[in-house]
Write a protein that binds this DNA or RNA. Structure first.
Lengths: 340, 340
DNA sequence: GCGATGACTGCAATCGAGTGCACTCTGCAT
DNA sequence: ATGCAGAGTGCACTCGATTGCAGTCATCGC
């Protein structure tokens, strides 16, 4: 008959020592303060009783929770689950837990989440929600709480970050389209308040310039969010008045909306218009047509972010680190040579 | 200059009362024990200082964490994120938090997760991982910890559950196919160790029988897992020797694999073979062809599960409850009348 | 005028683990 | 023999909020 809750005192009693001694014997760091034979007895007793230290009590005493908060815009967006898994699995290796919260890009909600997380004494934060002037981020830095941003970065403060190589990705896309013979290339750009939106937009202008190609204003539409609806709206707007033969969307979700708009307008992709995405989220290979896009290492990004955070939490380093992970162009059937 | 950590003693001092009084004044349930004017002063002080009670300390004392563990097979499976969001949002309304963990359908991993969760003193569990003889579930029930299973159920013990109406869903699918003129209907069934696999398989045999149609052994293949690979394998196996004109897959993921296998074999869906899925996960409307499937109320399932758990945790009831949520057949383009 | 009732409030213990400090005891050097 | 170092333990307090119990004080009834 296993007891419902085995406490340190139980273990100590069972081993015939004081709880303090038992505590020291059970912790790797303090074991040397205890006689080897005593330590052995305590460990044996702990094992026999099935002792699991109460994390709550430990936290109250030490102030550390072995927990990291993960703030994401919306778990339902297929970009995030693989990243979150990478984070969770990596944290778990060190017996850390992730607390996930969705902000829906809503400032008010984000504030609430932040308070809730801090009331829970989380040790650090992983933000997939950073925007250009991020008050959450600023608050964390002010209070010296370890943070890592993933995918998106913020301007200003020096914070560890993990992001895909936006520049290389967009460059590859542009090169690919130019190689196919496109010269009139348009873009559905992401929101300028998000680093991914800005970085990719800049990369497009740079990429086209490199090939001596222009990007006139009428070939650029900025989405107000990374959503299918916005993709559809932007594409429709472009279609109203453009001679472009290809559209570079700032991410897959926008690209999916673009494909919808093309279909609705009776146009064919890729015959009438090539479309590209970014991220290569789930099922992009199953669309009609399968989407040419830029594959980013989703899980790896999560893994790397968790590693960086753990390095800070375990005190192995305090230096900020910026990881830029390699991408790969995945050519599928949404891109083809322009008609004539 | 805000203090880094405002404690109850600070609030008490600021209001000129004892911490015990402050505690009582701040809790809805004990406020009546305190003089109204005193309570007002305490509340004002708390507000002014920006006091947030330390959840860790509260937990240590009360044994309640306001936390629910959510065990899912794999967050990366698009079926789960919407359910999890429903859970999280509903828990948040009562200031509860969800702790999410992935088990990958691996017993060993599940055991580890269970221990970790219990060390964290979670108040209750929501299991999306239940299988027929579930030892995790059994352990929780033995220790009288509140549990709700979602999507899948377990055999045996009486546990609260939330599931889609598998029976009605498959019935609707069968009716739809029969109406289109199909008489030779095959199935890629789910694993028999999972309730969803069994229930839907039974529903198919029942549905066909209702129409006086047979389901001979050569028209049934059981998948070993709900994966695309298994869908592909099962469909290939069926194609080797069948005169069926339609395939009912036990869920969308299997159906996606079926579509792949059909394409690989040079066949056309729906002309050569109709295919149906179950769940209507993300992007099923964007496949080629868009998948006819059964839409289940993902988010609602999560919401309902969280509600049931909260009812138990807040002591509003101890009765188990079985919610079966309504489904809706979504006819798209992967089903059509059989060729001739 | 005195006891009783009840409304408030404070005291002190508690939850379980961790840790600074002090104490004991052994072994060794002077 | 005395002193000292150092290993090993135990004591007691801490973390912050909650709560059973007891104490204070005012009010009311008789």
């Amino acid at each position: 008959m296993q007891q419902l809750k085995v406490t340190l005192r139980d273990v100590a009693a069972h081993a015939g020592v004081h709880p303090a001694t038992a505590s020291r014997a059970l912790s790797e760091a303090t074991r040397h303060q205890v006689n080897a034979e005593t330590a052995r007895r305590v460990v044996a007793a702990a094992l026999e009783l099935g002792y699991e230290p109460d994390l709550t009590a430990r936290t109250l005493r030490t102030g550390r929770t072995a927990t990291a908060a993960v703030l994401i815009p919306d778990l339902t967006n297929p970009l995030f689950p693989p990243i979150v898994r990478g984070i969770e699995d990596t944290l778990a290796e060190r017996d850390f837990t992730a607390l996930i919260a969705n902000t829906d890009n809503d400032t008010e909600r984000e504030r609430r989440v932040l308070r809730a997380m801090r009331a829970r004494n989380v040790d650090g934060f992983i933000l997939l929600t950073a925007h250009r002037n991020d008050e959450t981020l600023a608050a964390l830095i002010r209070d010296q709480i370890p943070v890592v941003t993933v995918n998106r970065t913020a301007s200003g403060p020096d914070v560890s970050s993990v992001s895909p190589d936006d520049n290389a990705g967009i460059s590859a896309v542009v090169d690919h389209l130019v190689e196919l013979g496109h010269t009139r290339i348009a873009t559905v750009a992401g929101p300028r308040t998000l680093s991914t939106g800005r970085a990719r937009y800049k990369a497009i202008t740079a990429g086209l310039r490199r090939h001596g190609l222009p990007l006139p204003g009428e070939r650029v539409v900025f989405a107000r969010a990374f959503s299918e609806d916005e993709g559809r709206r932007c594409m429709t707007e472009l279609l109203a008045d453009t001679d472009a033969t290809a559209v570079v969307a700032a991410n897959d979700t926008l690209a999916v909306g673009c494909l919808d708009a093309l279909r609705d307008s009776g146009r064919n992709c890729p015959k009438d218009m090539s479309v590209t995405g970014f991220n290569d989220i789930l099922f992009m290979d199953k669309l009609s047509p399968p989407l040419t896009t830029v594959r980013i290492p989703h899980t790896e990004m999560g893994v790397e972010a968790a590693r960086i955070l753990l390095d800070q939490l375990l005190g192995r380093t305090t230096a900020t680190k910026h990881a830029v992970l390699p991408i790969r162009l995945v050519v599928r059937e949404s891109t083809a040579a322009p008609r004539r």
